[in-house]
């Protein structure tokens, strides 16, 4: 089946088997290996990406279901060489060790903050209940998300606008992609 999907600001058209999972499409066809597979039951959340502005587990979406959609992965967050505030907060707060769960954790944290810009510890913990980490005990992840929230709050500086995912930046397009049309931008977590 032929599908057209916008990923991290670039539009791709590909023929895929209906059974291909979105995560495998991202990793194997597009080389978006920042998004990883950690389980087969949709429990670990390591494969979390944004699909049309909402976090989803890309192991539980078929690539054909994403036809016509916009996908943002961990690799599409940084802008102009600057990390997204949530990425920065994860680093600042030592919220990762081996880093395997981190892409999914960050993508879900961004979604969570779009729904609830000022979550307390409990809200963060429940907002991340679909993501497993075996290294950190979660405490620094919770701290990082709240730290990011404080920095992304209105008036907290230019970083705040990065709650929205990046608009198309021509410089970030990969040279070998089929860039047939610019993908529209969308906001994380907005409906």
């Amino acid at each position: 089946m032929r599908i057209t999907v916008g990923v991290d600001g670039t539009r791709y058209t590909d023929d895929v088997e209906p059974r291909m999972l979105l995560v495998h499409y991202l990793r194997e066809r597009l080389g978006k290996t920042g998004t990883v597979v950690g389980c087969d039951t949709s429990n670990c959340g390591a494969c979390t990406v944004h699909l049309d502005g909402h976090s989803v587990k890309s192991c539980s979406v078929l690539a054909v279901q994403a036809d016509g959609s916009e996908v943002t992965t961990i690799e599409g967050l940084a802008r102009d060489g600057r990390m997204h505030p949530v990425q920065q907060a994860f680093r600042d707060n030592h919220a990762l060790q081996c880093g395997f769960c981190t892409p999914g954790m960050i993508m879900q944290a961004i979604d969570l903050l779009a729904d609830d810009p000022d979550p307390d510890d409990n809200a963060v913990r429940h907002g991340l209940e679909g993501n497993l980490c075996r290294c950190t005990g979660y405490q620094n992840i919770v701290r990082a998300v709240r730290d990011a929230a404080s920095k992304m709050a209105p008036g907290a500086g230019p970083a705040a606008e990065q709650v929205a995912e990046p608009t198309l930046d021509p410089a970030s397009r990969s040279s070998d992609a089929d860039i047939s049309a610019p993908a529209p931008s969308h906001t994380g977590g907005g409906s």
Binding site: G45, H54, S55, V56, K57, S60, V61, D111, D115, E129
Partner: peptide, 9 residues
């Protein structure tokens, strides 16, 4: 139900 990602889909 489940978790936020699953509730989105």
């Amino acid at each position: 139900v489940a978790d936020p990602q699953v509730r989105h889909r």
